[in-house]
Design a protein around this nucleic acid. Structure first.
Length: 221
DNA sequence: CTCCGGGCGT
DNA sequence: ACGCCTGGAG
């Protein structure tokens, strides 16, 4: 079996086992971007509280968040942790958004390459956050790489490098440039990494034993 | 490598 | 009590 075939098999099995993940869980593109920043190194449950809080105050809106004091925003997103930092980062992002009059259509006119470069120029937005925004808010076909991706596929036996771009290129070369596929695949990787392929993996319950080096070599027992 | 951090599962 | 969470910057 080629790596490409194995990759597709993994995807099919994940999808069969967990089903569609319906990502990103948000009402609109703007909420996706805020969630993407808030969830940096943070559990989604804590982010949900913050998002609920923002909505509760009727502030889930680029104009209103832009007007809000940084310290006030920090209080509202406290549950997400790193709240001073993230408040600053959201402010930086909003400052960038303002140049587009906070309009989705204005931003979507940009090419993928230009948009990615601009996002990466915002202080507080790195590659993973930028790609999450590009994929889940603006629906560009880009494969999001995170620590789960590395851990999961390295256990499977793919021997990924530790370089973000190289890993991303690997997946994008192996797979079709399909936004729906990238959307679902990343979501399933996160799901599986939280359910079974955790820091301390639960290999005994895993449906990927036959495909997994970590299990085959006996580490999972 | 260290800081940033509340919240939750164990 | 402790460990970890859909990272990024200095």
């Amino acid at each position: 079996m080629t790596k490409k075939e194995k990759l597709l098999l993994i995807y099919e099995k994940l999808y069969h086992f967990y089903g569609p993940q319906h990502w990103w869980p948000a009402d609109n593109w703007f909420e996706v971007t805020i969630g993407a920043i808030l969830t940096q190194n943070t559990t989604w449950k804590n982010v949900e509280k913050s998002i609920h809080n923002i909505k509760q105050n009727n502030l889930m809106n680029p104009n209103k968040l832009y007007e809000l004091e940084k310290n006030e925003l920090a209080k509202i997103i406290k549950s997400s942790g790193f709240y001073n930092l993230k408040s600053e980062r959201i402010k930086n992002f909003l400052e960038w958004l303002k140049a587009y009059d906070f309009e989705y259509s204005n931003i979507r006119e940009k090419s993928y390459t230009e948009l990615r470069r601009e996002l990466l120029n915002i202080k507080g937005i790195g590659k993973e956050t930028a790609d999450s925004i590009l994929l889940y808010a603006f629906n560009y076909p880009v494969f999001v790489v995170d620590s789960y991706t590395k851990r999961f596929f390295n256990r499977l036996g793919f021997e990924l490098s530790d370089n973000y771009d190289e890993i991303q290129n690997f997946f994008e070369n192996m797979l079709e440039q399909d936004e729906k596929l990238y959307n679902e695949f990343h979501a399933l990787i996160v799901k599986h990494s939280k359910e079974l392929c955790k820091n301390k993996p639960i290999c005994t319950e895993c449906f990927l034993q036959k495909q997994c080096n970590f299990y085959i070599k006996g580490f999972g027992r």
